[in-house]
Structures are given as structure tokens and as C-alpha cells.
Design a protein around this nucleic acid. Structure first.
Lengths: 222, 222
DNA sequence: GGCCTCAATATTGTTGACAATATAGTCGAC
DNA sequence: GTCGACTATATTGTCAACAATATTGAGGCC
């Protein structure tokens, strides 16, 4: 077996955070991770830096990395900004779209459907996030693409932290709906469907009270 | 002298890119930078990774880092998203504002004014970007804060790439105008002033033709 | 002369050992 | 017994040597 790349390890950790096997606050020791993944500490260091920029972990100097605990305020900000980015992506995509891309996109949704049917949580997470990244990639907008990756990662963390049910109930139907509007060349309808989709995801969260960011024991026990 | 930190070196390089001493496409060799700043290559590597995430450099595997060449499309996307983020920041700031913060903010603008008067390009760049980051910090919204840092960096690069004049003519007046609206507790006016400010900055750019991303010599000489 | 191969060089990527720092536990004074 | 200082341990941070890869230039063949 070849050694794992930074991206592969980052994805594995991302998925573990997203499906709640790594809870917010969990300490991520470099040596431990290095052993688990069979790579050197230097590479783990790169991985942790990557995860930090994606907002999945917080690194404190001389202290190490822990899984981030997003605040409710952050969660709301992220959804707010994400709505703006997704709409911008759709606008760009609208001018870059062709038949080949459309086919590929519908195929992606088909995969989502299969994963949903098999109830494979990891695939569901990977594919439903991947849908949005794919839109950005096909829009051929480099900046939006990178931003979307970050936002999707952060959204995964938020869902892990604030979702009550384990079910990832936002199925592929809403994704397909967006594609159908694009196929019909109706940009406004696509944007509206996207906004609705994001609102649906957000509404599945329990963002009423701020149970997330104790940050310190003092706050947690106040 | 103590050795420079990653942040300090990253800022130095950022400023050099922003005031066009480092042009887009310039190769950044690790050994060279290590010698210039008197630090080990390992630290330079961290710096380059930081700059990459901020969109200032592009790193290709086994090839090294070069100063990024933003495309016109990216530039427009960045301004578009930035407008959304800045407005969100103002909304959050509006609820967190107090007299102390207001004083500090006006003091910042005063520093901008001095830098402008002295025509100190580096200070002008640092302070006028810093104004927007400061707003995000005072809004106490962690996610928006990180995002704003990235957007400010990317905007600096865009201005270096697309601005025709050397003059950083968007003076502190527009910043002050935003603060005055905040002081008057008029959120909508503040947001409008911010949008106007960003449009002003963008309008100083030459985004008509895509002269930016040759990407390869072949394209540049076509 | 044009083109391919191959060696020489320059540059990035990786590793393991070592230093610096923080954490946890222990001992002693009071 | 409680508090504080101190030691031992665990963990992160740094570095310099080495390996892998890409670039450049020279030589030879057609």
C-alpha cells in the first residue's frame, strides 16, 4: 500500500467529524494520528493545517489541535454567506453549462440516490457535499470553488454539532430539482430552489440556544 | 534579533505583492526566501501554505510557488462575495457596538489619514485593509473575521494586478462615512455606504479585458 | 539544423532526531 | 490537609541532512 496523501487523510478525518465519530472538543494528537494513518508527523501537521483553514479544527500554539466547536452565530453566518456563494455559482454555471455537464450532474445525483437507499452515511455525506462543490467546479470559477469547499466542510461540522436526528433527511430530490431548473434554462427558479434547499438543511438544525461553544470550563459551568 | 514568525513573514510578502514589488507570476523559491528572512526552509514552507490559502500564491506539486495571477472573473466574484460579507459584518457589528469600539475605530481612520498624508504606500495598504478586518473583529464573528482576512488579501492582489494608477486614491473618507452612519445607529445607511465604497474601489480597476491570467507563456505570446 | 537521450544541476519533498514548551504528578512546608 | 514549587513526562515546534523530482544543457544521431 502506498502511503496516504494529505488530502486523503484530511478527507478521512473530515468524514469522521461529519459522522460524529470525532466530537467537537476531541484532542487530535499528532503522534497518534501519524501512527493511525501510517505516515510521518510532518504530514499530519500539513493535514491539521488544512483542516484548520477549513474550520474543522482549532490549533493553539504549543497546545495542539482539537475538533472545532462552532458557535450558533458562526453557524448562522456560514449559512448566510453560503446562500450568497451558491447563488453566485449558479449564475456563473448558467453561462458555462452544456449538455455533457448536465449529464454528469444528473449522474452524480443518481449516485446520491443509491447511497441514500443503502443508508451509507459516509457516502451520503461525501456525495451531498460533493454536489455543491461539483457545481462550483463546473462553473469554472476558481475562487468560488475553493470557497465552496470550505463552506461545505464547515457545514458538515455544524450539522454534526447541531443536528438532533442522525438521519441525513435532505435527500437528493432537492438537488435534482435545482438541476431540472438549470436544464430548463430558468436561472431564477434554480436560485430559488437552492435557497429553499439551504433553508431546509438549516431548519433541520437546533440553533435555538447556544449549546455549542463553552470554550472554557468556566463558561461551561457558569 | 529574534527570528521572524510565520505571520510576520507572510505579511511582508503580502505587502510586497500588494505594492507590486512582487509581480504576479514571480517564482518564490524556498531557499531564497529562507535566506532573505533568515529562517529555515520549513518555516518558509508554512508561510507559503498560508499565502496559498489566502489566494496570494499558487503552489504546484514539485514545482514550487509563484505569485498568483487572478482572473477577471475571480476578481468580480471576489468583489461580489465581499459585498455580501461586509454587509453581514455590519449587521453583526451593529448589535455589538459600544462607545469604546467606536472610539477605537475612529482612531484607526485617523491613522489611515496620517499614512495617506505621508504617502506611505505600505502603511496605506496595511491600514486600509486593516479597517475592514477590524470591523469583522469588533463584530465578534469568528467565521466572518477569517473570511474577511482572506478577502482583503485577495483584494490587495487584484488591485496590484489590475489597477492602472499607482495611487491608492480611495482615501479614509469613505471609511469614516461608514463609521458615522454606525454612530448614528443607521444600519441601512452604513451598508449602503459600504457597498458604495466597494464599488468605488472596484471601479478604479481595469477589469474590461482579461489581461491577467496568461498562465503559460504560450497564452501570453499568442 | 532538428530532435531525441541522457547526464548534471537545481529545487522541492520527506524524514528522524533534537529542542522548547506545556501538562501532570510528587514532595515538602506550613 | 492545602498550597506552592519542583521534577518528570508527554506533546508540539524546529531544524538540517537526505531522497525524489523537475529543469536545464550537452552530446550524438538522423
Amino acid at each position: 500500500m502506498d502511503t496516504l496523501t494529505v488530502e486523503q487523510i484530511a478527507e478521512r478525518i473530515w468524514l469522521s467529524i461529519a459522522d460524529r465519530r470525532l466530537r467537537p472538543g476531541t484532542r487530535l494528537k499528532e503522534a497518534e494520528l501519524a501512527e493511525v494513518f501510517g505516515v510521518s508527523r510532518a504530514r499530519i501537521r500539513q493535514v491539521l493545517a488544512t483542516l484548520e483553514r477549513e474550520g474543522l479544527v482549532v490549533i493553539e500554539s504549543n497546545k495542539g489541535a482539537v475538533v472545532a466547536k462552532p458557535s450558533v452565530a458562526d453557524a448562522k453566518d456560514i449559512f448566510h454567506i453560503r446562500a450568497a456563494v451558491e447563488q453566485r455559482v449558479l449564475e456563473r454555471l448558467f453561462t458555462e453549462l452544456d449538455a455533457t455537464k448536465l449529464v454528469e450532474m444528473f449522474e452524480h445525483v443518481a449516485k446520491e440516490r443509491i447511497a441514500n437507499h443503502n443508508n451509507n452515511q459516509r457516502d451520503i455525506i461525501k456525495l451531498s457535499g460533493g454536489f455543491h462543490v461539483m457545481l462550483a467546479e463546473m462553473a469554472e470559477a476558481e475562487f468560488l470553488c475553493g470557497l465552496m469547499r470550505d463552506l461545505v466542510s464547515r457545514t458538515s461540522l455544524i450539522m454534526a454539532a447541531f443536528r438532533d436526528t442522525n438521519l441525513h433527511n435532505c435527500g437528493p430530490d432537492e438537488h435534482e430539482q435545482i438541476l431540472l431548473h438549470l436544464k430548463n434554462r430558468d436561472l431564477e427558479a434554480a436560485k430559488q430552489a437552492m435557497v429553499h434547499h439551504l433553508e431546509h438543511v438549516e431548519s433541520a438544525l437546533n440553533l435555538l440556544q447556544d449549546r455549542a461553544p463553552p470554550k472554557s470550563l468556566r463558561e461551561a459551568l457558569a
